[in-house]
Design a protein around this nucleic acid. Sequence first.
DNA 1: CTAGGGTTAG
Length: 517
Amino acid sequence: MQSLLLPAQESYLLLRILNGSFQALDSLKDQISVYFAQFFNSKSGLDLIDSRSISCDRNEKKEISDGEGEPRGAVFNALDAMLKGSLDRLKTMRESISWGHTGSSDAILETKYSSDITMIRALCLEGKLGTALWLWRTMVQQFRIPDVLTHNYLLNGLCKSGDLGRAEWLVKEMLRHGPSPTCATYNTLMSGYCLVNKVDKALDLFSTMADHGIRPNRVSCNILVHTLCQKGLLEDARMLLEKILEEDGSDGETSDLITSTILTDGYFKTGNMVEALTCWNDVFQRGIEVDVVAYNVMIHGFCLTGDINLVYKSLCEMFKSGHLPDIFTYNTLISNLCKSGKTNEACYVFSVMPRMGVPPDHLTYKMIIQGLCINGDALRANHFLSHMLEDSLIPKPLIWNVIIDAYGKCGDVEKAFSVKIKCFGHISSALQLHDEMLRRGCNPDIVTYTELLKCYCMRNKMEEAQELFFKGIKLLQPKVGAVNMWEEIIEVHVKDGFTVFLHIISWTPGVLAAIVM
DNA sequence: CTAGGGTTAG
């Protein structure tokens, strides 16, 4: 409880600041400087600058070191740190006071500890690493060291966000001050390396783990095998696996469904169906129980090889073994049906999903709408769009673009005058879609405008095209992509393209820059 | 969901 008490002078200053009793900014500055000098000279027990403290923001850290040559900067940096520290302590104090009457202080500290580590873990899962690290630092400064699990959550968050620099730093911190890294810690860092394509570093870590007294496990192995498979290095993956298993000795743990799934998937994706099936049969021969993911890999594999009968056969086997299809299964199936032009079957499968307790997701809609549009069925695609909106799923620009494009393409196929009139109607539908996008807070992107321009250009409606072009430029805040729109006009209508070019020349420098790029 | 496998692709 001692650390909760505020030194008298500090609290006095703090109170005065909070009460706003300083009359002028200058006097504030002076008092701060004086206080700051006293603070440093007296070397009071405040743990403002802890050796373990890290900066959540790198610039912040840089400022502090830059400030050495500039006393005023240093003063304010230190003041920031001081105020923050004081506020933190006040918060802690207030919390403990409000709980003080209900239980013993040990119980309070324990509750606080577990609520803090729960908070860190939740923040990491939400990807709020800055806040998570801040809370971590706060705890460390109060000598309340989070457990390994929490450290691993932090590490995982850093790795998933691609911040390998801080991930490495965190592991070093753990080695220096504890808690000691576990196998999961090293595995997390390994998969982080793989994520940013530093496979050599991952391999390096794999072979040096033992130096820290941690033996790589099955997960470590799978991480590497998976990465090698992703790169198409199937043979290397297989060799590595064999080598590891050899060194490991036969502790009966040679069969791992996940390893087999990774390899099967890898073989299917590189077009080696024979090896894929060998892998799969191997699993069955060993009597390993197969799970939904493994079935999905098989179903996807047969989709790739075009064996629709084997796809359905696998589905039947899946049902027979008591596994129900999940969202991946349905999406794989729908994707395949759409690609082979069987949109009716795809729509049927779609209708089955909610009844089987698996509601369609963004991907399902995307594939079915795209499939219908490729088939020229803009009307039905639009129907699914409404369905999607009813499901409270906000379509990404791509979906809108695909439908706009489908409307535009109608004119390409049918040339009769009467149909042309109908297509003009579709142009207005396209514009309606565009307006609906804006209304729903979905920003049209460069492709949206390019598609709309195509609609106009195909029908020689160059004035509208130009108008839309400028509208798009304005809304998009010119990017490199603007060149696409520009090219679209030129390509379709060379002569008028020159007129547009003249218009652009007289446009703002920002637009010009975009065009020149 | 402390770490490892599966669905798309303007």
